[in-house]
């Protein structure tokens, strides 16, 4: 998982405090796209419960605009932000719309849609994700010409499959093919998904090896992936690895909250030991 050193709130230029009515108004209009972009982010961040929010965000998935590199505006910025917000709102009505976005020619939009379908635990997304990845690291995982991006947003798609949680043999075989991808971040995402889906510590061990990688960016990714899988044997290696405490704390939160297997999180001895390590990192 791409991990920033620290989650500082994005502060788009239109970033003055607004309320829900204002966010909906900004998303409804379509003259000012930067206002729509901010409104889409805001509705997701605030976990809006307003039914109109879902409707407007689903509509916004269809919006298209070119990239404006000089203004820092990404390609199809409103649609991508709408896809991200729909993952946070937790409403199943968004799923068919996100599935459609998964077939969009814009790989950035497919990436955002895949992540959100993962957050929504959308079983319906598994066949499409599996088909998109089936050609393996050499095709789906090959770089695009003149870009560092891959043909498919493999990392997001692999992570989504792990979140959704369907452990079907054919699917596992597709994910396993990415364990040999040349990029360590993709390997990390594949191991994370396999650890989540199979609970086999072999994949946890692979993530521990990535936690020792010479590049900080890879260690950060392995931290986030171990946290997402909630794999508790990683406690000590996480404590020791050279990375920012912010990321270690996020990973350890994952170990507390998402333990693999049937351990509901209670204040038992093991959890107390985890919290003691977190205290030391503050």
């Amino acid at each position: 998982m791409i991990a920033a050193a620290e989650p500082i709130e994005p502060a788009p230029s239109a970033g003055a405090p607004i309320d829900e009515a204002e966010a909906l108004r900004r998303l409804r209009q379509n003259e000012d796209q930067s206002a729509q972009y901010y409104a889409a982010w805001w509705l997701g961040r605030m976990r809006s419960r307003n039914p109109e929010a879902i409707t407007l965000l689903c509509q916004a998935l269809g919006q298209r605009q070119p990239r404006q590199a000089e203004a820092g505006v990404e390609h199809n910025a409103v649609a991508r932000n709408a896809a991200r917000a729909l993952g946070k709102l937790g409403q199943a009505e968004a799923i068919p719309h996100l599935l459609q976005a998964l077939d969009d020619p814009d790989d950035g939009l497919r990436e955002a849609a895949a992540r959100s379908l993962g957050e929504l635990r959308a079983m319906e997304a598994v066949p499409v994700l599996c088909t998109r990845l089936a050609s393996g690291p050499d095709v789906a995982g090959a770089p695009q010409t003149a870009s560092s991006r891959l043909q498919e947003p493999c990392e997001a798609m692999l992570e989504a499959l792990g979140e959704i949680g369907l452990a079907e043999p054919r699917l596992l075989a597709v994910i396993e093919s990415f364990v040999a991808h040349e990029r360590p971040l993709i390997r990390s995402a594949a191991c994370r998904a396999l650890l989540q889906l199979t609970d086999d510590s072999h994949w946890g061990q692979q993530l521990l090896a990535l936690l020792e990688h010479p590049q900080l960016q890879v260690r950060r990714a392995a931290l986030m992936d171990l946290g997402a899988a909630g794999w508790r044997p990683a406690l000590e290696p996480i404590r020791r690895t050279l990375a920012e405490n912010s990321l270690k704390l996020m990973a350890l939160r994952g170990l507390v909250e998402n333990p693999a297997g049937p351990h509901a999180t209670r204040l038992d001895e093991e959890t107390t030991a985890l919290l003691a390590v977190m205290d030391e990192l503050l």
Partner: peptide, 19 residues
């Protein structure tokens, strides 16, 4: 995790064996 940590603090302040 915040709820758990606050719960641990309360149990320690009550003289509990929370760790």
């Amino acid at each position: 995790v915040v709820r758990l940590r606050a719960g641990l603090a309360l149990s320690r302040l009550a003289g509990g064996a929370g760790g």
